[in-house]
Amino acid sequence: MKSQTLGKASAPRRRKSLLSMGAEFPTTTYVGIAICAFLLLLAAWTIVARLGLVQPIFLPSPLAVVAKLIKLAQDGTLGSDVAISVYRISIGFLIASVMALATAILIGAYRFWEAAIEPILDFVRYMPVVAFVPLSILWSGTSDPQKFLIIWIGTYFQQALMFKDNIKRVPADFVGFGRTLGMSDLRVLMRIVVPSAMPQIWDTLRISLGWAWTWVTLAELVAANSGLGYRITVAQRYLQTDMAIGYILVLGVLGLATDQIMRFLGRQFFKYEKRS
């Protein structure tokens, strides 16, 4: 890594402050700072809770939250809540992604379909997802399809436009090259254009998966009898603040974990992009 060697090389010459603008330092220092910041936040939380500055019913201590999470994990509640939410996000996200990719190929490659479809996507995109919640319940009750619907509304429209952008960025000469081989338009699309855009499409998937977590939680908060979001509303009803905070933390960790998994898979799939 370039930044590392640069940082090490210049360190003995003149010790620049970590706080100066554009300062470079090794990755280990970076991670160290990140961990310290986390610990500081945790310490502040602990102190506030310990000193009784805020009543435990509003802000339980970190230890109480962890204890509650362990208890919920042991009796299986946490596991089944995670499982059902992961199931919902998987199906909803899969449906949205497949549809969005098909739409994007259509509007990215054919001007006619772009004119017909893109303005509609753009319009719907600006309608707040939350405003659709009552309608979604009206249409599909409080069952799983209602969760899929909310996730779909929240991700499909954004994805379709972003995928289209990914596809449009493929250089025109790639299409020209395919044509000089006598390939049909459809073949050029499927064998050259889409594969060329794949690394960017994957990145869009990763980003939109992060949003999908928000939408599944929202759907479960409003109308559900299972899942992570549902458990948070239960916690509110019975004043179990420790459970609410614990579940929010779990959601954060799940989001972070899926993001890291997507990054890792992306690095595996698109190894060819890296110089060596």
């Binding site: 250089p171 790639f174 020209g176 090259f177 000089t180 081989l181 594969p195 060329s196």
Partner: peptide, 20 residues
């Protein structure tokens, strides 16, 4: 009539497929 394999083209921009 349109492009065909009787004419091969080398473009100025790089057109190698990056995953191959």
């Amino acid at each position: 009539s349109g492009p065909g394999i009787d004419r091969g083209v080398v473009f100025q921009s790089y057109t190698l497929l990056p995953w191959l």
